[in-house]
Design a protein around this nucleic acid. Sequence first.
RNA 1: GGGCGGUUAGCUCAGCUGGUUAGAGCGCCUGCCUUACAAGCAGGAGGUCGCAGGUUCGAGUCCUGCACUGCCCACCA
Length: 945
Amino acid sequence: MPHDLPKSYEPGAIETRWADYWIKEKLFSVPTPPLGETRPVFTLLLPPPNVTGRLHMGHMLNQTQMDIIVRWHRMRGFITLWLPGTDHAGIATQMMVERDLAKEGKKRRDLGREKFIERVWEWKKLYGGAILDQMKRLGASVDWDREYFTMDENLSRAVREVFVRLYEEGLIYRGKYIVNWCPRCETAISDLEVKHEEVAGKLWEIRYPVIGASSEKLEFITVATTRPETMLGDTAIAVNAKDERYTHLHGKKVLLPLMNREIPIITDELAQPEFGTGAVKVTPAHDPNDFKAGQRHNLPQIDIMDEHAHMNQNAGAYAGLDRYEARKRILADLREQGFLVAEKDYALSLGKCDRCGTVVEPRLSEQWFIKIQPLARKAIEAVESGEITIVPENYKQIYLNWMNNIYDWCISRQLWWGHRIPAWTCDQCKHVIVAREEPLTCPKCGNTKLEQVSDVLDTWFSSGLLPFTTLGWPEKTRDQAVFYPTTLLITAYEILFFWVARMIMFGCHFMQGHEQDPAIKKASGWADKKNDSVPFRQVYIHALVRDADRQKMSKTKGNVIDPLEIIERFGTDATRFTLAAMAAPGTDIAFNESRTEGYRAFANKIWNAARFMFMNVDRLGFVWANSTRVGTGAFARPAQGEARPQGGTGIAAFTLSSLEDRWILSRFNRVTKEVNDALASYRFHEAANRIYDFFWGEFCDWYIELIKPRLNFEEGSDNSPARIACANLVNLFDASLRLLHPVMPFITEEIWQAMYEGNPPLKSIALAAYPQADENQFDLNAETEMAILQDLIVNVRNVRAELKVEPKAKVPIEVFVHEPEIRKMIERSLAAILSDRSANVEKVSFVDGSLAKQAGARSTARFDVHVIYEKKIDVVVERERLNKELEKLEKEFANNQRQLGNEQFLAKAPEKVVEGLRRRAQELIGLREKIKNQLRSLNGTGPDI
RNA sequence: GGGCGGUUAGCUCAGCUGGUUAGAGCGCCUGCCUUACAAGCAGGAGGUCGCAGGUUCGAGUCCUGCACUGCCCACCA
């Protein structure tokens, strides 16, 4: 591979190439591990995107986080399975195809069910893969060989199996209940699919005449309603038994206006005396509360609307009208006939269909339900016991609250696209048969004419089963023994109830008694877990991505940020890095491009550091081959039977020939530790920032600058010091790339491959070992010494800037130190000081007395440094700076003394803190004195203020 | 009606279990095209950590109240 990289990083040119390569080489495919496998396993199920989906920022965040965790585990030697697939997404997909049909002026009923479904499959084949292709662009390291679709035959069979089993266990029942009905989608939807919205509405008060109250004086009972059209279906008026206003009316009847139907006045808890008039109309077929009241009192249910929310023949004169048109007419008629008492402004929350936004109508219909309590109980237990942990922890309570207040789940949908309910109705006796396969005869009457129930299942019914159905259930497979329970689930809060909760319920129920392969379980770190029926051991809930103004992104608002467009402009790596760096757990992400721009600059920085490295490698004819790395084994993927990859940073043959070498090795180990710790607790932002700061702020800004003199050998002279420096540089670069790889997979792969000149030890950096910290390589002395060196150089740069010394002018400096030890340190680093371009020092000389009185001098706790330059300093500016500095020191000193003078503090604070403050006090005294001296000498040379 | 989060530099955000001098990026100002990088280098300005109390030797960090703001959940006509 050529080393002459372009001067600027061009992500577009390399990213698609590596994405394709990873797939082509099947680097992330995981065959079923054989019996006796003892390596740890990490399993992650991709929340299946809708087949209709286009990649949005939420996906991108989700997938970036998953890919980071997955790559990290893989590089640490786990058998790492990330399982991808797509969801058939019942309503959403059906809507897309219906929209398509509408362009041809057709409706789905024109085609008929079979033809329509064929059409959906065609559509799916054509457009369904789009989102997965987009995923590939992100570099998601999933196992494409295991890709599934929720309507694949094997998964569909599992769905039927689950349905039949639940039915046989009595956990599925069918019945006529009030459900949320979307008149546009023409189907029932679950409570979760209804989104409530506050709107300014009206509350109408209508009076119903009481029959036979008194012959001379008409009496009325007044009720309030927000949906007056439903009065056509009223079958009672309810008052509270304790409400004395109405005691005399108990047992009486009223005449329903417009319909002239006699309906009873009943007493029921439904009516609360404090609200409105205390009397309430009861419409059992159109309101869930009324439905229950109706059952209590055995009231008739009069359904007055059809599936489109148009009034039906039960609505008398209003039949055929749309619900809102009917409302208008009814109000007009009531007003005209004197029944409308009042119209008040009223804020109400309207339920709307999550998919299409149509106002949901409570509707009485025959549906299938899951009796949820028995399932919920196990799901609660799994989380309460800690068998499943939820991060961040506050979601645990949210989950439990929901689970504790759960209602039976309506699982039938009146759609065509989806898993059809495996139930058949006998044409003759109307008996319902639930079976795995189509029955030939009715077991009750022997009739052979049976018709399958036309409903399909809620999409979440099948996706709730995925953790085990994708692993071969209902068969007992080796895959299940190895990969179930999956290790982790990373998902958005939005689908905590839709999906996460349901997976837990189904998993705990259907996998009860399942045991994970004990050796693998132990190796993976789950030996302490008792319950292997759970679908995953941990859940990580990530934030929402908002736009730069913290607004929720939505198509209607038009503020959707297209991740692919961002990727196009800044590169996938930079986009991934942005999301990782902003993903502090628990808070939403306001995506702003300026950050991505900054991380593109970071990629460019890495790129150019690589160019620098290659430049030297080429000049020295240095070969980075296996022989160069001595015996750590850290590059090899762990062999079979090896529980963990060998530890260590993988920095082999790193020669500690100078301060900067010792320092950078120590720093690398510390950073490695921090990054691993951060990833272990999903602190993506911390991991990303640690690497960023290290690579740019330490590796590039200091280490590379400091080794430049060593690399710059004279032509024809001994180049062995340069070779050593180069080896260290390459070594460290390799390790840094591995550290960064999970976050920025593309650029790291590109450079890593280039380092091996087309002959890498592994097919990909993605298979190399992740650096692990070696605490023996923490070197506090080197870090301290380096800090002093940096401090000295920065102070010189500082003074130069202030004295406005021409950048090209070399200056001599004087240094005064209090301790001989420090002097030795500085002397050891003379070459480094003299080679720093910005300090541009000509000569260093040590002096015996404090330099604090000199203009152009700086004092620190450990040394004074004086830049010798004839140019006069700006006295006013300098005095201002010193005064400010002094003020700061005085403030700190006062605070310091206050604490040290406090006996309570001395008694209670830990020794370390007290010790630190004491040391600081000494420093402060010294520094204060020096600044004062400088100010005094300044006043001798310049005008007073 | 309940529950949960946020409020730190001009902007976007870090700051884990309370501990010495509150950080970063962008933006801004000054100076540099220094032989990896101007998507860069060096230097600099900028914060009473939303408000008011409290606990503590010590509070950006813990507690209470308030203000503003966002999110979720809820069948009260």
